[in-house]
Each structure stands twice: as structure tokens, then as C-alpha cells.
């Protein structure tokens, strides 16, 4: 117990040690911005995988690691859509996941936000037209913000979520764990 605490003290704080997002901030349209206003201080997210390759899931997980530590901005992951303010949907919506996605959307209390994460969720990516895919996400549930990328980097996801929450003024200024080159 003391050894791991000592190790943590020795390691110090790593939060924020990443490159800043280099993509432009997504725009949040009128009604979405209105809805998002209720979640300025805290946003409970339910992640729904509708057929992604697991890349976006890994980056969502990375968002919770000590380096990005999204919790410091009030962003946390809810275990059920019933506890969520926002759904983060990844993947092109497969025929098999279509119903589960709609169920999760219905189970989320209003007002709610939907974030389409990754190229597949935004426009089906390479799977556009496939017999097994019925997406993109916005065909089935209304989408408030799209975060493109394959997969988007955690810094980009964090930036999008902060924009959504109206934190634009406190955008993270990152610095890599190790300097470049």
C-alpha cells in the first residue's frame, strides 16, 4: 500500500501532458446549444457501440486516464442510459445493433444530447452501403455533435465535449508526455 502511494508521489501529476487538439472545434447548433446549457457543470455520458472497430472505445477509455482526466471537467461515464445526459455513439449502426441503439436512446431521460463519435458514426465510413449496416447514427436518432476522425484523438474528443458544455474559454492547453522529436 505504501509502496504504490510512494510510486504515485514519485510519478507526480501527468494530467494535461498531451498535445493540444489540432482540429477545429465543432459547431453546436441552436437547439443543441440550448439543451447543452443544462449540462455546463457536469455531463454524464453513456457510450453506445453500434458496430465500431473498438478504436473509438479505446480513445473514450483513454479520456478517463490520468493524462486526459475528463472527470476534472465534470465529464463522467454512466453505467446506464437512464443515468445519462448524453449518448456517445460509435460505429456505423449495424442491422443487429439498430434496435439496441434506439432502445438506449428512448431510455435516456430528456433533455439529452447525442454525440456521433468517429467517421463510422458520422457517415458509415468504409461500411457505407453494406448489407449489414443501416446507419449513419443520425438516420436513427437525432445527432447534436459530430466528432469525425478514425478514430478521433482523445484531445479532440475532449475539445468537442468541452465546446458542447460551453467551456470554450478553458480549452485544454496540452503538452506532450515527452517533447516532440
Amino acid at each position: 500500500m505504501f509502496r504504490i502511494l510512494r510510486k504515485s508521489l514519485k510519478t507526480g501529476i501527468v494530467t494535461g501532458q498531451h498535445d493540444a487538439s489540432s482540429t477545429s472545434t465543432p459547431t453546436v447548433a441552436g437547439e443543441s446549444a440550448e439543451k447543452a446549457r443544462s449540462f455546463r457543470r457536469s455531463l454524464a455520458i453513456r457510450e453506445v457501440d453500434s458496430g465500431s472497430c473498438n478504436g473509438c472505445e479505446m480513445e473514450m477509455n483513454a479520456l478517463m486516464n490520468p493524462v486526459y482526466d475528463a472527470e476534472r471537467f465534470g465529464i463522467h461515464i454512466a453505467a446506464s442510459p437512464r443515468h445519462a445526459d448524453a449518448l456517445v455513439v460509435t460505429g456505423p449502426v449495424t442491422v443487429n445493433m439498430e434496435k439496441a441503439l434506439k432502445d438506449a436512446y428512448r431510455a435516456t431521460p430528456d433533455p439529452k444530447l447525442v454525440i456521433a463519435l468517429g467517421d463510422c458514426a458520422c457517415d458509415c465510413g468504409m461500411f457505407k452501403g453494406s448489407y449489414a449496416v443501416t446507419g449513419p447514427v443520425e438516420r436513427h436518432v437525432p445527432v447534436d455533435v459530430k466528432v469525425p476522425g478514425c478514430p478521433p484523438r482523445p484531445a479532440e474528443i475532449l475539445q468537442a465535449l468541452q465546446t458542447l458544455m460551453g467551456h470554450a474559454g478553458v480549452a485544454v492547453k496540452g503538452r506532450a508526455l515527452k517533447p516532440k522529436g
Binding site: 473498438n54 439496441a100 449489414a132 449496416v133
Partner: peptide
């Protein structure tokens, strides 16, 4: 649940272009 029809989509691609789909079979093992 996540069946995306990967093997069928492969058949639409050329041998050279198939790589980018192979990267998306399982993201953690791109």
C-alpha cells in the same frame, strides 16, 4: 451484434486497397 459485413466489403476492394479495411477489423489490433 457488430457484424458489419467486413468480408463482403473486402470483395468490393482491390488487393492493394484492402489494407485500410483490414485495419478496421479490430481497431486495437490495427
Amino acid at each position: 451484434w457488430k457484424h458489419r459485413g467486413v468480408e463482403k466489403v473486402f470483395e468490393n476492394l482491390s488487393l492493394v486497397n484492402g489494407v485500410s479495411l483490414a485495419e478496421k477489423v479490430s481497431g486495437d489490433t490495427s
